[in-house]
């Protein structure tokens, strides 16, 4: 939490741990609203639930009406699909399932890596309406956790909270006047940090190739054009105004350099490569240990 005297509300949601820190404990009614928001999000977007909209879409093509947040999410994904030449796509869910990362959690590849279908072939994402021309496994994992951070922040702001930190297992949004010191974790050694960043009024999200690793060489960041895991960048961090953008951009940095993404997004980045070198924008200057 930002300060030892802040109150923390912790809970599990969408398969990970959440912490909301505020100067004073949250009222029970607000806690309930946050939990309801998480459940609503999961009911719409979870790839692991057969009763979710995404679960239905995996079986039946058609036109689906998603919650309000779908509009911003669709534009974000379409932008990044273009900037990464199709490598970053929400249609990678089928490829993930092929590699064993599906609802059954076999964690065993069930065949050779499978490229994701092309967006223009199967998907029409128009605001909150998503239409599919084939059964597709939609996976919003690259931005979903950050998006939920933003949605919880909106609930807090609506309730009048001004100073708060939302932490979705390392996807952070710090709002208000206090700075939060955040360690940038070493990609392969959680005992170490490679730097420290002061976060205030923005979101910081990270992505690392060792997270959710299983099997030899198969980790969770997949190149949608080949269905194979990405290899060169090993850890990325992105700072942006919304956690949704920061989360997605942290993943996009595995596919393209930050300079390319800067054309379309107002954000800062740090990318660490497997040879130990780092590439970063000006805002990360001085945050790395030397």
């Amino acid at each position: 939490m930002p300060d030892a005297d802040w109150a923390e509300f912790s809970f599990d949601g969408i398969g990970t741990r959440w912490e909301v820190a505020t100067p004073l404990p949250l009222a029970p009614a607000l806690r309930s609203r946050l939990l309801e928001r998480v459940e609503k999000f999961d009911a719409g977007w979870s790839r692991f639930r057969s009763d979710s909209l995404v679960g239905a879409m995996a079986h039946s093509p058609g036109r689906y009406s998603f919650p309000a947040e779908a509009a911003a999410l669709g534009t974000l994904y379409r932008t990044l699909y273009g900037l990464t030449g199709g490598a970053m796509t929400p249609l990678v869910g089928g490829s993930l399932e092929r590699l064993g990362y599906g609802p059954a959690y076999t964690l065993q590849p069930s065949g050779p890596p499978m490229p994701a279908p092309r967006w223009e072939d199967v998907l029409d994402w128009d605001g909150t309406a998503i239409s599919t021309r084939a059964p597709v496994v939609l996976d919003i994992g690259a931005a979903g956790k950050g998006l939920l951070v933003d949605l919880l922040a909106a609930e807090l702001a609506t309730a009048g909270e001004k100073d708060f930190l939302v932490d979705g297992s390392g996807d952070l949004l710090a709002c208000g006047s206090r700075r939060v010191a955040v360690a940038l974790e070493h990609p392969y050694n959680p005992a170490q940090a490679i730097g420290v960043l002061d976060l205030r009024g923005r979101a910081l999200c990270a992505s690392a190739a060792n997270r959710r690793s299983w099997g030899d060489g198969l980790h969770h960041v997949l190149d949608g054009t080949t269905g194979r895991p990405v290899r060169t960048a090993v850890a990325t961090w992105a700072l942006a105004d919304t956690a949704m953008e920061a989360d997605a951009l942290a993943t996009a940095l595995f596919f393209v350099p930050g300079q390319v993404l800067r054309d379309a997004f107002n954000f800062s980045w740090l990318t660490v490569y497997s040879d130990g070198t780092a590439d970063h924008s000006a805002e990360f200057e001085g945050t790395l240990f030397t």
Binding site: M1, P2, D3, T16, R17, L165, D167, S169, G170, D171, L172, V180, A181, V182, A183, L184, E185, H186, P187, P190, A191, Q192, A193, V196, L197, L199, L204, C205, A206, A208, N210, R211, R212, A235, W237
Partner: peptide, 17 residues
């Protein structure tokens, strides 16, 4: 000094660490 408010990275492991 390893204790900071938060850790951003492969965060599944930081609780264990």
């Amino acid at each position: 000094e390893l204790k900071v408010s938060k850790v951003a990275g492969s965060s599944l492991t930081s609780g264990g660490f």
